[in-house]
Simulated assay, not measured.
Amino acid sequence: MTIARTDDGVDLYYEETGGGTPIVFVHEFAGDMRSWEYQMRHFGKWYRCVAFNARGYPPSAVPPDAASYSQQRAVADILTVMDHAGIDRAHIVGLSMGGFAALHLGLRHPGRARSLCVAGVGYGAEPERQALFRHESEVAAAFLLEHGMEAFADRYAVGPTRLPFKNGDPRGFEEFRRQLAEHSALGSANTQLGVQRERPSLYSLPEELRTLTVPTLILNGDEDYPCLAPGLMLKATIPSAALSVIPNCGHTINLEAADAFNRVVGDFLVQAESGRWPVRQARNSGDSITGMSAHADAVRQ
């Protein structure tokens, strides 16, 4: 068992496989490092792959106080694992909660990221949805503490954006639900309260997002409706962002469409490593549709 200890004394469990350029995988709220098994096996053939359990997810430690959990802590925990593994720079691949952490790592510590894959990001990000998301995080935390993990998994796993997974791959979905039921109720409740509820809206960070030049892939499933509009916003705002959408796929894209996910991410990593990843210029983002309006204005001047 490989353990990295954070500066606030929390033990984080991680595993690695393969060799070469490092990739760090950061899991979603309903997952853990086991959720990345398809990716660890696939990318471990060519890369040094690292996956870890976030704080609150055994065998990582479960701090009892929700104040020990935050978006900033989630970013710092990625860096703790990287430092312990002797990794200076890595491709960071995150899904949902892990995608938020990957993006914030790129904003705060761009020198530590070779690239960012920001997958399934957007829940509660839109300003008009933020109050509802905060309320649902509080309801989820209360349910976890009152009814336990098994009952929570039975409800949470069949949320609207998980149904494509359930309908398309019943056996894979049942494994996902069973692993979710094995999580810590306390750790999951604290994650809801400290990380999910309190993270800043992406729409409040336009100036920071415009400074990001690390190669970035925004990746969503087309049935994951809460993430589609935020994904477009990120594509339009981040100068170094590409956008890819996997068809007929919900939120759990690395599991329900593992082959497509691996193919898109693999192509992205090769391009990001090439040294020729494009960064969009300001002139590419004007209001004109064809460019003729801007041309006419220039002629008149």
Results as ranks from 00 to 15, higher is better:
residue 160 P to I: 12
residue 161 T to K: 09
residue 162 R to K: 10
residue 162 R to A: 12
residue 164 P to G: 07
residue 164 P to K: 12
residue 165 F to A: 12
residue 165 F to M: 13
residue 165 F to S: 07
residue 170 P to K: 09
residue 170 P to S: 03
residue 170 P to R: 09
residue 171 R to C: 00
residue 171 R to H: 12
residue 171 R to Y: 07
residue 172 G to A: 11
residue 174 E to M: 08
residue 178 R to F: 00
residue 180 L to E: 13
residue 182 E to V: 00
residue 183 H to C: 03
residue 183 H to R: 15
residue 183 H to L: 07
residue 184 S to E: 12
residue 186 L to I: 15
residue 187 G to V: 02
residue 189 A to F: 06
residue 190 N to C: 01
residue 190 N to F: 01
residue 192 Q to D: 02
residue 193 L to P: 01
residue 193 L to K: 10
residue 196 Q to K: 07
residue 198 E to V: 00
residue 198 E to C: 03
residue 198 E to A: 06
residue 199 R to H: 07
residue 200 P to Q: 08
residue 200 P to M: 03
residue 200 P to R: 10
residue 202 L to V: 02
residue 202 L to T: 08
residue 204 S to G: 04
residue 204 S to M: 00
residue 206 P to Y: 02
residue 207 E to T: 05
residue 209 L to S: 02
residue 209 L to M: 08
residue 209 L to Q: 05
residue 209 L to D: 08
residue 210 R to P: 00
residue 211 T to I: 00
residue 212 L to Y: 06
residue 213 T to M: 00
residue 215 P to M: 02
residue 219 L to D: 10
residue 219 L to N: 11
residue 221 G to F: 11
residue 223 E to Y: 08
residue 224 D to Q: 03
residue 229 A to S: 07
residue 231 G to K: 04
residue 232 L to M: 12
residue 233 M to D: 09
residue 233 M to N: 08
residue 234 L to Q: 10
residue 234 L to W: 07
residue 237 T to N: 07
residue 238 I to M: 07
residue 238 I to R: 14
residue 239 P to W: 09
residue 241 A to H: 11
residue 242 A to S: 13
residue 242 A to T: 13
residue 246 I to D: 08
residue 249 C to E: 05
residue 250 G to W: 06
residue 251 H to F: 01
residue 252 T to M: 07
residue 252 T to N: 13
residue 252 T to E: 12
residue 255 L to M: 13
residue 255 L to N: 11
residue 256 E to H: 05
residue 256 E to K: 06
residue 257 A to K: 15
residue 260 A to L: 09
residue 260 A to Y: 04
residue 260 A to K: 13
residue 261 F to R: 08
residue 261 F to D: 03
residue 262 N to Y: 02
residue 266 G to Y: 06
residue 268 F to C: 03
residue 268 F to Q: 04
residue 270 V to C: 02
residue 270 V to H: 10
residue 271 Q to K: 15
residue 271 Q to P: 00
